[in-house]
């Protein structure tokens, strides 16, 4: 099943399919290890509902929902 990263619920796991962001944000996501094929586990949402925290490539990454929306994921059971 495909789903955007911002729609993930805590502990849900998935694999990056593609990234629709452009320019600086796109490069930043790539540099931080959010590349096609990377496995991501959703951790939590910040108290005010945004940003979110995910585990990618063995470390904790924080990004906003608006940025996570550009990450198209394939849910892994």
């Amino acid at each position: 099943m495909d789903k955007k990263l911002n729609d993930f619920i805590p502990e849900e796991k998935g694999r990056v399919k593609s990234i629709t962001a452009e320019g600086k944000i796109r490069r930043r996501l790539f540099d931080m290890g959010v590349t096609p094929g990377a496995e991501i586990v959703m951790r939590k949402t910040a108290p005010l509902g945004d940003p979110i925290e995910v585990t990618v490539r063995g470390y904790e990454l924080s990004l906003r929902k608006s940025e996570a929306e550009t990450v198209l994921m394939e849910v892994v059971k």
């Binding site: 944000i25 930043r28 990454l61």
Partner: peptide
């Protein structure tokens, strides 16, 4: 601007 940031251990 964006907020794509590492959260250190």
């Amino acid at each position: 601007p964006p907020f794509i940031m590492e959260l250190p251990t």
